[in-house]
């Protein structure tokens, strides 16, 4: 058996057994954010684009799913698809505008565009303003699978998130993913070889946005809530933090980062304002001392051992 599959199998075993040990809602939160971080990592780690606006896709999709399921009475699966579709469209619009500039400008542009989405959600009637959309019903999936049972919901969320991980893995290791990496390493060279870098970047951006949307939609199903917190720029900061802590450009890094950051938020919640300060300190420490992140440092250490 391929040795690289080993960590994946161990993780799968842990994920299947986890709800019997840990509170399922907490686990589902971790799963949603792990997916969000992986979707974000697809851009920063494999294309080298730093988006500071991913909250717009996450929160936007959360609102769409919440509204369509609660107000229009759509089934859960249709609500999820609607969320993904809207996030992908937003991603197409953001991407088309933002990929005109690179590096630092790209970050500022995506941040500004997502702030626009935030103000839209703040003012629009359907989002319920400061209250958000609350108590979203958990309709049965495909009319059969009862999502009101938390254990069932957990396995459904797990299955969806794992399929999304698989999609990301396949994308990164496909010829398409190789072209993306070559654009990250040397864009002029990739262009000179005949690749239309803009198209590749845009497609990667849309994919990342759609998967972030899936994460947001799932989050609104799990918590039965979509609120302004989901679209705020702090959310974009959080997903960056998770990816950075876990390790930019590593497959499992964002998952580890999501586990660490969500666990930390959970235990530190009573400290109130200090959570932000601690997150800031982690940013500073990671940027200064552990730029490879947890998974990156571990794999660097392992390869040193072998050498």
């Amino acid at each position: 058996m391929d040795r690289r599959l080993l960590p994946a199998i161990v993780l799968l075993g842990v994920a299947l057994a986890a709800p019997f040990i840990v509170y399922p809602v907490f686990l589902m939160k971790v799963l949603c954010f792990a997916l969000f971080a992986c979707a974000f990592n697809l851009l920063i780690g494999y294309v080298g684009l730093v988006s500071f606006g991913h909250a717009a896709f996450f929160g936007g999709a959360a609102y769409i799913t919440a509204y369509s399921v609660k107000v229009w009475g759509w089934p859960t699966e249709a609500g999820l698809l609607a969320g993904i579709a809207v996030a992908a469209l937003l991603g197409l619009a953001f991407g088309a505008i933002a990929i005109r500039r690179q590096g630092i400008y790209f970050a500022m542009i995506t941040l500004a565009l997502s702030q626009m989405v935030f103000f839209f959600c703040l003012q629009a009637k359907f989002t319920g303003g400061e209250d958000g959309i609350q108590s979203i019903p958990r309709r049965p999936l495909f009319g059969v699978i009862d999502l009101k049972n938390e254990l069932t919901l957990y396995y459904v969320v797990l299955a969806i998130v794992l399929s999304a991980f698989w999609l990301i893995y396949r994308t990164v290791h496909s010829p398409f993913g190789q072209v993306l990496k070559s654009i990250r390493e040397n864009e002029p060279r990739a262009v000179s070889l005949g690749y239309r870098a803009e198209h590749y970047k845009l497609l990667a951006f849309v994919l990342s946005a759609a998967l972030s949307g899936l994460a947001g939609s799932l989050k609104s199903v799990v918590f039965q809530l979509a609120s302004l917190t989901d679209v705020q720029w702090q959310m974009s900061g959080e997903v960056i933090l998770m990816t950075l802590v876990g390790g930019l450009g590593t497959i499992f890094g964002p998952v580890v980062g999501a586990v660490v950051v969500i666990t930390m938020q959970n235990y530190l919640a009573p400290l109130g304002e200090w959570v932000l300060v601690i997150q800031g300190v982690i940013f500073v420490v990671v940027v200064l001392a552990f730029r490879r992140g947890i998974v990156g440092e571990i794999s660097a250490w392992l390869s040193r051992l072998r050498a």
Partner: peptide, 20 residues
């Protein structure tokens, strides 16, 4: 990118302390 992330962290720290 790292300068941006570092100063973002600094902003969180400064604003968090004042909010506290």
């Amino acid at each position: 990118l790292y300068g941006l992330l570092l100063t973002f962290g600094l902003a969180l720290i400064i604003e968090g302390v004042f909010r506290k």
